[in-house]
Each structure stands twice: as C-alpha cells, then as structure tokens.
Amino acid sequence: MKSKKLSIPYIIWMLVFTMIPIVMIGITAFKDSHGNFSLEPFMKAFGYTGVFLKSLWIALLSTLICLVLAYPLAYLLTRMKKSSQNTIQMLLMIPMWMNFLLRIYAWMILLQKNGPLDTALSLLGIHGTYIGNTGAVVLGMVYEYLPFMVLPIFTVMSKIDGGLIEAAQDLGSNGFAVLRKVIFPLSIPGVISGITMVFVPSASTFLVSQYLGGTDDIMIGDVIDKIFWTDQSTGSAISLILMILIFVFLVLMNLFGDEEAIA
C-alpha cells in the first residue's frame, strides 16, 4: 500500500505511449520530404490559417450556444426533486451513448432535402436548405456536446449552500438578484469546465463538418485527417499548432477560473 512501485508499469506506459508519440510529432513536424531539418511543414501549415480561424469560430459559436441552452437547464435541474433530477440526467446521457457516427448520420437524415424537417416546413410554406452550411455544422456540434455543458454546471450548482440563498432572500434580494449575485458567481467553476469540455473537442473534431457542412466548412481536424496519410510532416506541424492552441486555451481558462474563485 505504501509502495510507489505499483505505478512503475504505468510510468513506463506513459513514457512509451504518451511522451514518445508527442516527441515524434515534434520531430516529424520539422522534417522535409527527404527527412532533413526544415521549416517547410510549418510554412505549408500556415497556408491553412483560414481553416484554423473557421474551426475556432465554429467551436466558439457552438460553445456559446451550448452555454446559453445549458445554463437555464442546469438551474432548473437543481430545483427538481432528486428522482426527477436522476431521470433528466439519464435522458441527457442516453443519446451520448449512441455511436458518434450514428448521431451525425441521424442529423443527415433529418436535415436532408425532402427529409422530415424539409417536408414539415414545406407544408408550412417555408422552403430552405438545412444541410451543407455552417449552421448545420454548429447544430451538429451543439447536439454532440450539449450534455458536456449541462452536467458540470449542474454539479457545481447543486453543491451551492442553500443557506447562502436564504440569507440573500432574507436580506431582501428578489429571485433575479439571487440568481445574479449568488448563484451565478458560485457556478463559474462549472461554467469554466463546461466551456472547456465543449470547446476543446469541437475545435478539433472532424467528420461533423464533412457530413453536415458545405465545402467551405472544412475544419482543421478534417485537414489533418486528409493530409496525414500522404504528408506526415505537414500533418504533424498542423497537429502541433492545434495542440499548442488548445493548451494555451486551457491555461487561460484555468487562470480565469482561479481568479474568479478567489474573488
């Protein structure tokens, strides 16, 4: 029990399967097609700046929409009986257990031309295209990651001391003031982890945009997937940049979260 030895297999494992692969990406990113040191892969990677920006934009939009949808839901959840809380939480989890590709495919069916949504809206006299644009990609992302936003916010909110809320009410705060001055500040850690859990995967995901988006909605994950099979160096350079961006984002979120916790 007191032994540190039990962690030795995992330390070796991390070395082989976590550290070495990352180092390999770092090395491959600085090689040209002849295996010599070169900055060429990064030059090529910068050619995809537009795709990077578009991915970050889609991820940002998806995260914001998730937050706006999830926050009231999490708040309502805290005001329910324990049994209804469990039921709703389970209902939120079930779609996440469906296979990732099947969920996206389901949206392809639902949104396609002459599909259920198109047919229903046509009856009302509304005609439009619901697939093959940025909106559809964002919709797919929100669908994929909404529960990742609800659950952390709910967890943090449900731990808020009821006494604090009663105290605020006793001191004359109305419902909205309680929400703004007590519940919201105390729920920030949950919001931060929710934002992280939605933003990171949606910025780096691939396939969603291939299936739901148009030709100009291609995301950085799709680019890595497309070129890695033929050009590992550029693929590695893009992966490295993506990883650095994500780490910077995580550090920023952490800083922000800590400050809020102190204040």
Binding site: V16, F17, I20, P21, I22, M24, I25, T28, V200, P201, A203, S204, T205, F206, G221, I224, D225, F228, Q232, G235, S236, S239, L242, M243, I246
Partner: peptide, 12 residues
C-alpha cells in the same frame, strides 16, 4: 485533442 493523439500513436 483526440485527433492529435490518434496521429501521434499512428506515427509510433
């Protein structure tokens, strides 16, 4: 990101 882990393992 998953994709970075995927490509790094593929390299390995």
């Amino acid at each position: 990101p998953d994709i970075v882990m995927g490509v790094s393992l593929m390299l390995l």
